[in-house]
C-alpha cells in the first residue's frame, strides 16, 4: 500500500517529510534496536518495533497528526522521524524527533523540527508545543535550546522521569 494520503508532505532544503512505506521498516527497526534509541523507549525487539511502526501510522488516523518519516532528499534514505505525538499518558501533544545513524551533525533535526513545528501551528492548531527530553540526552537538549525552547518542569512519562521543554509560540503570518 502507498503512503497514507492524509499525511501531508513537507519539504525543506535537504529533507522530505512524508508518510510511511513498508520499505521504511528496516531503517526504523535498525534504529529501534540500536543504542541510539535509548532515550525514546528503546532498544526494542523487532516485534515491538513493528508494532511501533504500525502505531506511527495509526496515530495519524486517530489524532489527525503524527510523526513523519524524514527522507534525505539527495539519497532517498530514511534519515529519521519528526512530528507530533499524543499517546495515551502524554500530558499534551509533543514535538518529537529521532535522527538515524549517519545523519546526525548536519542540522537535519533542526530543519525537520522547524518545518514540523510550523506546520503543527498552522494546520493542527498546536501552538506552542512541548518536547519531553531525558536529562541525560545532551544532543537533544542542545537542539531544544537551538530551537528556542525553555525548560518548564520535571515530569514523568510512562513511569520514566524526564524534562518538559516548551517551544516558543510560532508566529502565524
Amino acid at each position: 500500500m502507498s503512503a497514507h494520503p492524509a499525511i501531508p508532505v513537507l519539504e525543506t532544503r535537504d529533507l522530505i517529510l512524508r508518510g510511511y512505506r513498508e520499505s521504511d521498516f528496516p531503517a526504523f527497526a535498525a534504529f529501534a534496536a540500536s543504542e541510539r534509541s535509548r532515550f525514546v523507549g528503546g532498544p526494542q525487539s523487532r516485534h515491538d518495533s513493528w508494532r511501533s511502526f504500525m502505531a506511527s501510522i495509526g496515530h495519524w488516523a486517530l489524532r489527525g497528526y503524527g510523526m513523519w518519516v524524514i527522507e534525505h532528499r539527495d539519497t532517498g534514505a530514511m534519515a529519521g522521524r519528526v512530528g507530533v505525538i499524543l499517546n495515551d499518558g502524554w500530558h499534551e501533544p509533543e514535538l518529537g524527533w529521532h535522527i538515524y545513524d549517519g545523519f546526525e551533525g548536519r542540522g537535519f533535526a533542526y530543519q525537520a523540527c522547524l518545518a514540523a513545528r510550523a506546520h503543527a501551528a498552522r494546520h493542527f492548531g498546536l501552538n506552542p508545543l512541548m518536547s519531553y527530553i531525558d536529562a541525560a540526552n545532551d544532543r537533544s537538549l542542545r537542539l531544544a535550546r537551538r530551537l528556542g525552547c525553555c525548560f518548564e518542569r520535571d515530569v514523568e512519562v510512562v513511569g520514566q522521569p524526564c524534562q518538559l521543554w516548551r517551544h516558543p509560540i510560532e508566529e502565524l503570518r
Binding site: 504500525m54 501510522i57 496515530h59
Partner: peptide
C-alpha cells in the same frame, strides 16, 4: 495505557501496510 494505545494505533497501521 501507553502500551494499549500503541497496540490500538498499530491495529490501524496494520490496515495501511
Amino acid at each position: 495505557p501507553y502500551e494499549t494505545w500503541m497496540l490500538y494505533a498499530a491495529e490501524i497501521g496494520h490496515w495501511q501496510i
